[in-house]
Simulated scan of single mutants.
Amino acid sequence: MDTMMKGEDSEEVEIDLEDSSDPEEYDNGTEPEMLWRAPPALEDEENIHTSTLVEISDTKPLINVRDPRGINDCLKVTFEDVIAEPVSVRSGDRVWIWSHALFEVSRVWIYRIVTVLLAIPVSVISGLLFAILSCFHIWMVGPCVQCVSIGTRWLQSLWNVVLSIIVRPLLLSAGKCCGGFSVHLAKE
């Protein structure tokens, strides 16, 4: 039996290379499963209207889950988190309902308006900043760290020898000497 794997994301596919003409192999009356034939693809209604570019895009999963790592969990604020009336003082029911509705509508629409005004410029500035930092780190910091690391390899070896021959035995003996002391606190 041969096993083939393609890439890390592919499923394992088994191909039976044995002779399929053995009648005793299928005594239960079922047809053998053809492993070499792929099942017909069923198109979902979502995929009918999407192009190939959208299907392979990295941003498609982000449309539904916009905070997958929970970075902004502190911003999950509802009306009840901000405004709450105790039992002793209460406004009218209509005031409470209208306050709740206006809070939600103003929160959503003001956020949308500010997002329209600021999202694209802030995205461009953030992308530019992270691109510059990435380029600086990849082409400047990384090579400099590697050069220093290669150039000071002998110093690292010497430091390891000094630590293992001088410092470690000295601190171990000091620890054993101080380990014999005990302090007892008694209340007089």
Rank of each mutant, 00 (worst) to 15 (best):
L53S: 09
G70E: 01
D67F: 06
L53T: 08
E80Q: 14
S91I: 13
D73G: 14
N64Y: 13
F79E: 02
V87Y: 12
I63D: 01
N64H: 08
S88H: 11
K60Q: 11
D58I: 07
S57M: 03
G92I: 01
I56E: 05
T59E: 07
P68T: 05
T59S: 07
H100Y: 12
V77H: 01
V54K: 06
N72D: 08
K60F: 09
D93H: 10
V77F: 07
D67Y: 05
I83L: 12
S57E: 02
E55I: 06
I97K: 13
C74M: 10
V65D: 14
V87G: 01
P86S: 11
I71G: 02
V82P: 00
V65T: 14
E80D: 15
L53W: 08
F79N: 00
L53Q: 07
H100W: 11
W96A: 10
R94V: 12
E80T: 12
W98R: 12
R69A: 11
G70Y: 02
G70W: 02
T59N: 04
A84W: 10
L53F: 10
I71K: 08
C74T: 08
S91Q: 08
I71Y: 11
D58M: 10
V89F: 15
I63F: 10
D81Y: 04
C74F: 15
I56S: 02
K60C: 03
K60A: 11
V87H: 06
F79T: 01
V77A: 01
R90Q: 15
R66N: 09
A101K: 09
I56H: 04
V89W: 10
E85Q: 14
I97M: 07
E55C: 07
W98H: 07
D67N: 08
V95Y: 15
D73M: 08
S57V: 06
V77N: 02
V82N: 01
S91P: 00
G92S: 15
I63Y: 08
L75D: 09
V95E: 10
I83G: 00
R66W: 11
W96H: 12
S88K: 08
D93R: 13
R94D: 13
W98S: 08
